[in-house]
Design a protein around this nucleic acid. Structure first.
Lengths: 135, 135
DNA sequence: TTGGGTGCAAATTGTTTGCAATTGT
DNA sequence: ACAATTGCAAACAATTTGCACCCAA
């Protein structure tokens, strides 16, 4: 009885085939960031007959359960990645489309400070660097 | 012959009523960040009979012309602001929806450095802080 | 005059929802 | 058995587009 099984149960979600498959896809995807549509397509390729609506519902539940993170990069479609627990931001290469994760404690702290200076409390943030290979 | 007139001509756009009105709205809006729907509503209130499709088309043209910036904050709908030329990032209050602009030279430099450390050159970035009033 | 601009309605795209049938526990 | 979950289609929300008419240059 694999790990994913436990993760789902701990989140209070029934262990169903669509959920197991989607969780597995996200965990093994080397690109790391998949859209609902991409997940749906891969399920089809694997012979799973899962509805797109289910993919959306499952992803939303996973997000609520803290299993995955949803990002809204440019392009209109949301992408999802496993929430490893270690926060990071993203760098997107505009030439190759490659996504690099990074973390800067200095930037994190500056953000907290800036929010505080304006009388606010930071609840979340989104930082994406668009870059190109240095010539 | 007002300023907006020149701005439009310089951008190679015919000076039409919808364009003038939308440009004016954006320049005088104290909140600074308006969605297409909001602009459409205000035009109606002012007695202008402009179509929502035209608002979208004009905003897209303005963006291409470098007159306005489009942002995709959370909430599904894009918002637009005049491109004043002076770069800044945004802080969005998740309770009131208020948008605050800020600029941190430290964060800007850290971003450059991080991109460089990964062998990249920073071409653009998107930083949004989601905040709530400090209790 | 005339090609760009506009209004309206219909079409798209991404995502959500109602409901009856299905399935984990 | 029973409530949770799924599939499908219809519903939605934001934005785009086709097309006939209109107007700034």
């Amino acid at each position: 009885m694999p790990d994913q099984n436990k993760e789902l149960q701990k989140a209070g979600l029934k262990v169903t085939m669509p959920r197991l498959k989607i969780l597995e896809l996200l965990e093994t995807a080397d690109e790391g960031h998949l859209s609902a549509e991409e997940i749906y397509q891969r399920l089809l390729e694997e012979g799973e007959q899962t509805g797109l609506a289910t993919v959306y519902r499952v992803l939303t539940q996973f997000e609520s359960a803290g299993l995955v993170l949803r990002h809204n990069f440019e392009g209109g479609k949301a992408v999802y990645e496993i929430d490893s627990g270690s926060h990071h931001d993203h760098m997107v290469c505009t030439e190759t489309g490659r996504v690099i994760e990074f973390h800067s404690e200095e930037i994190e702290q500056l953000q907290d400070r800036i929010a505080a200076e304006h009388g606010y409390e930071l609840t979340d943030h989104s930082l994406v660097l668009y870059v190109r290979p240095k010539k």
